Amino acid sequence: MQRPNAFPPQGQIPANAHQTQNPFASLDGQSYDKPHAALKDRPLDMFYVCFFLMHIPATLLLDLQAVYPPSLLPKWMHALGHMYMEFTADPVVGSVNGYFGEHVKQNFAWLRMFMFSELLIQLPIFFYASYSFYSISSSTTPSTSPIPTLYPLLIAYGALTATTTLPCIGVLLSTPSTSVPLDFSSSVAGPAVTEWQRWLLLGSYIPFFLIPLGIAVDMIFRTRFLTRKGVWVVQKGMLSKWE
């Protein structure tokens, strides 16, 4: 039995197809052929932009110290990392930066690879996504909109970030407890955190797992919605109006 053609030939498209009501217009609050709302009117996208912009200094100043050449690391940046370790005793950052000795640092070579991915993949996405979310409001056609690139890219970003952050949370949960905070002014035998430090670190790591994961899920649903909308446009012979 022959399956019906989902995309009828041009000659079979009704003459009034361009006047057919778009069933997707009511789902996103605007018609597919109208400009997107301004960023200030898209609170979720605004939240994503704030998250990316906030992530940039934390990435550059703390996370990536392990991959910078030591000769290029300014003293003030090293002091910032030392201050962070004195306050949190972060077993993730401390291990990969050698605060607990070379033997521990070697065991965290996998985390160093994660940080290279943060430098080469995540950091550029922070800048690109922030600008793209801002520029969507001035894009009225598929040829000028960043959405076809932005949404799939953020799916990959969210999946990568959640995957690389989850093992770090596992490290925090498995780090031994100590009643006295570690003193990094002298050599430290190995990672250990107080219960207060553990909860502090979990409170900072878990959002950086959940938010990227949420971004990926959100972009999957947005991409699915736009794909269905695109199929509807093609079926109704309205592609020329959308271009």
Results as ranks from 00 to 15, higher is better:
100 F>M: 04
76 W>A: 08
127 F>T: 07
182 L>W: 01
190 G>S: 13
39 L>N: 08
72 L>Q: 10
152 P>H: 08
200 L>E: 07
96 V>R: 06
54 M>Q: 10
152 P>D: 14
169 I>D: 05
6 A>E: 15
110 W>P: 04
126 F>M: 09
236 K>S: 15
96 V>F: 00
58 A>M: 14
62 L>E: 05
107 N>V: 01
153 L>R: 14
212 P>L: 10
48 Y>I: 14
174 S>F: 02
32 Y>T: 11
126 F>S: 08
34 K>R: 11
31 S>G: 14
231 V>S: 07
66 A>I: 06
21 Q>E: 15
77 M>H: 03
26 S>K: 12
15 A>Y: 00
101 G>N: 10
16 N>D: 14
187 S>Q: 15
198 R>D: 06
63 D>M: 00
133 F>H: 13
225 F>H: 07
225 F>E: 06
7 F>Q: 12
55 H>Y: 06
176 P>Y: 04
147 I>L: 15
33 D>L: 11
185 S>Y: 09
128 Y>P: 00
125 I>G: 01
117 S>K: 06
104 V>W: 07
237 G>R: 09
4 P>D: 15
152 P>G: 06
137 S>W: 01
158 G>F: 08
170 G>I: 03
129 A>D: 05
39 L>S: 06
221 F>M: 11
152 P>I: 00
7 F>K: 10
36 H>E: 13
130 S>P: 04
22 N>R: 05
160 L>Y: 09
76 W>T: 05
200 L>V: 04
134 Y>A: 05
117 S>H: 01
7 F>V: 08
144 T>V: 10
18 H>S: 15
57 P>A: 04
64 L>N: 02
168 C>L: 15
236 K>F: 02
182 L>T: 06
234 V>C: 11
200 L>H: 11
42 R>L: 00
141 T>M: 07
126 F>Y: 13
227 T>G: 12
194 T>D: 06
193 V>I: 15
68 Y>M: 01
147 I>N: 04
37 A>L: 14
60 L>R: 11
74 P>F: 09
144 T>E: 07
149 T>S: 14
165 T>D: 02
193 V>D: 06
182 L>K: 01
69 P>Q: 07
126 F>N: 12
184 F>C: 03
116 F>N: 02
119 L>K: 03
157 Y>A: 10
241 K>R: 11
189 A>N: 13
178 T>N: 10
130 S>Y: 01
89 A>W: 00
143 S>N: 10
200 L>F: 05
6 A>I: 07
28 D>A: 07
102 E>T: 11
226 L>C: 07
165 T>V: 14
107 N>S: 10
12 Q>L: 11
215 I>Y: 09
108 F>M: 12
66 A>Y: 05
22 N>A: 13
45 D>N: 13
242 W>E: 08
28 D>T: 08
83 M>F: 12
53 L>Y: 04
26 S>T: 14
140 T>S: 15
217 V>D: 01
178 T>C: 02
47 F>W: 12
82 H>E: 04
210 L>F: 08
38 A>S: 13
49 V>M: 12
42 R>P: 00
113 M>Y: 05
228 R>G: 15
41 D>Q: 08
9 P>M: 00
185 S>I: 00
79 A>G: 06
85 M>S: 03
130 S>I: 00
56 I>H: 05
127 F>A: 12
226 L>M: 12
209 F>M: 13
156 A>S: 10
31 S>F: 10
31 S>Y: 07
12 Q>P: 04
147 I>R: 13
